[in-house]
Simulated scan of single mutants.
Amino acid sequence: MLATGLYRASHLSAGLTFVARHTPGSAAAWAVLATAVTLSLLLYGTAHARGRLDRRWVWADVLVTGCALPWLALRAIGAPAVDQSGWLLLLGGSASSAAAVGLGLRGAAACVLLLLATSLALHLLVAGSRSAELLGHFNAVLSSAAMAWVFWWYLRRQGSLLDAAREQAVAAEARRVRQAERMAHHAALHDTVLATLTTIAAGGVDANAAPVRERCAREAAYLRRLIQRDETPHPADGPAAGTAATGAALEAAVRSAECLGLAVSAQYHRLPAVPRDVADALAAAVGEALNNVRRHAGTGRAFLTAVGRGRGVAVTVVDRGAGFDPSTAARSCGTGLPRSVHARMARIGGAAVVESAPGEGTRVELRWPA
């Protein structure tokens, strides 16, 4: 659009100079120039608004500017207006270049034939129009269309190559992140589940002892979450690095609470990529919500759900414990809710909603963005 628009602007500038110098008193000449300028503004203004050349306006430009205006100028102004070396037929070159970009090969070929036929007909009618000038004009129309099409093809090809390179880089980064996450899970399994099973198999502990059963239950919950976690990113999410970071941060908060004796049933679903500070703030707020369950709810179990909302995240922590009156949250939960949950979410552009009532349990919802 830029190249063909500048090409048209150069022809209109030549037309303005010609009319101002040679036919300044001709209303018809100014009307022809104004028509060409108006149609050019409509063609390229629409293209700028839509991001592409509109086929209808391209055809209108070819038929009116390239074909009709020369005939009108011949009738209203006379033969000098459509001389093969004059400004009016120059518009045929810029019209053919716009057709090559906006209509494709077949449409451009049809437009070029129309422009050449118009020029040939005018050449046969206008006395004194030399064959050399006609051939030069033919060359201008054909070369303008050819160069514009080659330019368009080259830019499209380069864009496709860049897109392919970007997709390869994204795929390589996703593979690297998945490998890093697998290694992290392997290390976690080695330090937890494998260590527990090895100890039990060696007979070093009583498998029926309550602490051993509790540890096995926590590690079974950890394995269950690994199986259930849906970390498939949305097509617009890009690399899975942010997704992995979100899930890993929330998982760390859950495991920290479980180490203190709180059983957490967690579900993760389609977590999108989020900035690192957002993932850290969400995990910290979740940790505080789980700590409040452990300290104040009078129950040993909490339920956590983390889901993607487009490019955002919603995390819900629920317990079926004693509950409290939210209006007295400061007395019930100290400074945890105002400072460690509400304020932390507000700093990252998120929000926290706490719903509770005495005897009805508590629900804490964390949303990012708010």
Results as ranks from 00 to 15, higher is better:
Ala236Met: 08
Pro239Arg: 04
Ala241His: 10
Arg224Tyr: 03
Asp230Asn: 12
Ala221Leu: 12
Val254Glu: 14
Gln228Gly: 14
Ala244Arg: 01
Asp237Met: 08
Gly242Glu: 00
Arg213Trp: 05
Ala244Asp: 03
Ala221Trp: 03
Asn208Gly: 02
Val212Ser: 03
Ala236Leu: 14
Gln228Phe: 05
Ala217Gln: 09
Asp237Glu: 09
Ala253Ile: 01
Asp237Ile: 02
Leu226Arg: 15
Leu226Tyr: 08
Gly247Glu: 11
Gly247Leu: 05
Thr243Asn: 09
Ala249Tyr: 01
Val212Arg: 08
Ala245Val: 02
Leu226Ile: 06
Glu231Ile: 02
Asn208Glu: 08
Asp230Phe: 02
Glu219His: 15
Val212Gly: 00
Ala244Gln: 05
Gly238His: 08
Ala220Leu: 14
Arg215Leu: 12
Ala253Tyr: 01
Pro233His: 03
Asn208Arg: 07
Arg224Glu: 12
Ala245Trp: 14
Leu250Arg: 00
Ala253Asp: 03
Arg225Ser: 07
Ala241Ser: 15
Arg218Pro: 07
Ala220Gln: 07
Ala252Trp: 08
Pro239Asp: 01
Pro233Ser: 05
Tyr222Gly: 06
Ala249Glu: 04
Asp230Ser: 06
His234Asp: 15
His234Glu: 14
Leu223Val: 14
Thr243Cys: 15
Val212Asn: 00
Glu214Tyr: 05
Gly242Met: 12
Gly247Arg: 01
Arg255Val: 10
Arg218Leu: 08
Ala244Met: 13
Ala220Lys: 09
Leu223Pro: 15
Val254Ala: 06
His234Phe: 10
Ala241Tyr: 06
Ala241Asn: 02
His234Pro: 11
Ala210Met: 03
Thr243Glu: 12
Ala209Glu: 09
Ala244Glu: 09
Glu231Asp: 13
Arg224Pro: 02
Asp237Pro: 09
Ala249Gly: 03
Gly247Lys: 02
Arg224Ile: 01
Asp237Lys: 02
Arg229His: 11
Thr243Leu: 12
Arg224Thr: 14
Gln228His: 11
Ala253His: 01
Arg218Cys: 07
Pro211Gln: 01
Ile227Ala: 05
Glu251Cys: 09
Ala220Ser: 13
Pro211Phe: 00
